[in-house]
Computed example of a mutant assay.
Amino acid sequence: MAGSQVHQVINGGLLVGIASLALADSLNPATIAVITLILLTVSHRPVGSAITFVLGAMSTVFTLGMVIFLGANAAADAVGEGLIWLRRGVFLIAAIALAVAGLRRFKGRERKGIDLPSWFGVWTAFPLGILVTGADLPNAFPYFIAIERMVAADIDIPVGLFVLAGYALVYCIPCLILLALGLAHGDKVRSRLRKVLDRFSTGTIKRSIPAAIALFVLATAVITIVLWP
Rank of each mutant, 00 (worst) to 15 (best):
A2D: 15
A2M: 14
Q8A: 13
Q8Y: 06
V9M: 05
G12D: 04
G13K: 09
G13R: 01
L14G: 06
L14M: 11
L15S: 12
V16I: 15
A22P: 02
A24T: 11
A24Y: 07
A24L: 14
N28G: 04
P29K: 01
T31V: 12
T36C: 02
L39K: 00
L39D: 01
R45M: 15
P46E: 14
P46Y: 11
S49T: 09
L55G: 11
M58Y: 12
F62Q: 08
T63C: 04
L64F: 13
L64Q: 01
L64Y: 07
F69Y: 05
G71I: 06
A72T: 01
N73G: 13
A74L: 13
A75G: 07
D77F: 01
V79R: 00
G80R: 06
G80C: 00
G82P: 01
G82S: 01
L83M: 04
I84M: 07
I84G: 00
G89L: 09
G89I: 05
V90Y: 04
V90N: 02
I93L: 14
A94D: 08
A95R: 04
A97E: 08
L98D: 13
L98W: 12
L98P: 05
A99Q: 03
A99N: 02
A99G: 08
V100G: 02
V100E: 11
R104D: 05
F106E: 09
F106K: 09
G108P: 07
R109D: 05
R111F: 01
K112S: 12
P117W: 01
W119H: 14
V122T: 13
W123R: 15
A125R: 12
P127A: 08
L128P: 04
G129H: 11
L131V: 14
V132L: 09
T133D: 08
G134F: 08
D136A: 15
L137M: 12
N139M: 15
A140C: 11
P142V: 13
Y143K: 06
Y143H: 09
F144Y: 15
A146V: 11
I147H: 00
E148F: 10
M150E: 07
M150V: 08
A152D: 03
A153T: 13
A153L: 09
A153Y: 13
D156L: 10
D156Y: 09
P158Q: 07
G160Q: 10
L161P: 00
V163K: 02
L164S: 10
A165L: 14
G166I: 14
A168C: 11
V170K: 06
I173S: 05
I173M: 03
L176F: 13
I177W: 04
A180G: 12
A180K: 07
A180I: 08
L181R: 02
H185F: 14
D187E: 12
K188Q: 07
V189S: 04
V189W: 05
D198Q: 03
D198Y: 01
R199T: 00
R199Q: 00
S201V: 00
T202P: 00
I209W: 08
I209G: 07
A212P: 03
L215G: 06
F216W: 13
L218K: 12
A219H: 04
T220F: 10
A221Y: 14
A221G: 14
I223V: 12
T224E: 10
V226T: 05
V226C: 06
L227G: 09
W228F: 12
